[in-house]
Design a protein around this nucleic acid. Structure first.
Lengths: 123, 123
DNA sequence: CGGCCACCTTGGACGAAGTCTAAAGTCACA
DNA sequence: TGTGACTTTAGACTTCGTCCAAGGTGGCCG
């Protein structure tokens, strides 16, 4: 646990939003000016493998990092402005995939992304 | 409808798999050597806005294009090799998102991505 | 204390994917 | 044939991410 890693963890923990790697880097730089992009990417990668943080790929642009990894949830994305909300649908999509539709895969995980238009963009 | 657009449409229609823009370009070049990358991107973009083709962003790498846009379906992705299968789960995830979880959004669409390991990679 | 080794960080180069732009080509139609 | 609208092209450019070699840092053991 180095100063750099602590800073990255703090940035993610501080704001419960979905930051891009670049945004994490900017905020990390504010706390520790010499931190490099490579270190931020490395640290984010480690946090992801440790299961502390989730990668979210809601749009084709940059990956986003979701510090809320311990509470299972899905995402609601604004098609217009890209805003992301965590949501908790009822039901279990894993149970909705019959064996005949699994093609022999060992299915371990499911991601649900709702798309729509947020109140701001609708106005 | 120009020769270039016809070729792109043929490539997508010919193979019911999920191609990246680059793969579409390579196959299009085989049929029409002078077609440019920009044209392929333009045409894919138009097909997407027309609703003829779906963009799929299952991994962080290249977008993939799914010609099977008229039959609603979701995707099963191999975490190891990236293979993608179309699947048809039972149930309607849109109905599983209560109003209280919609944050005022007008929700129009939902994408479900199952992740697992395919039989090939498991062996 | 001093040396050694493992690991971390840095900065810049590199690569992949996609977008943009200016110029040239093509087509319908009067 | 001339005109204007639209398309295509090639390549430059941007963005996002990864890689790598060099240097730094700290722990540990003698």
């Amino acid at each position: 646990m180095t100063a750099q890693r602590r800073v990255v963890a703090e940035v993610l923990d501080g704001e419960h939003v979905h930051l891009t790697a670049d945004e994490v880097h900017s905020r990390a730089v504010a706390k520790l000016p010499e931190i490099s992009r490579a270190t931020v990417y490395n640290t984010l990668g480690e946090l992801v493998s440790l299961g502390e943080v989730l990668e979210v790929a809601t749009d084709k642009r940059a990956k986003r990092y979701d510090p809320n990894a311990h509470r299972p949830h899905h995402h609601l994305v604004c098609a217009r402005c890209g805003a992301i909300k965590d949501v908790h649908p009822t039901g279990n999509p894993l149970a909705d995939l019959p064996d005949s539709e699994r093609f022999g895969f060992t299915v371990s995980d499911v991601e649900v992304t709702y798309r729509g238009v947020c109140p701001n963009c609708a106005a």
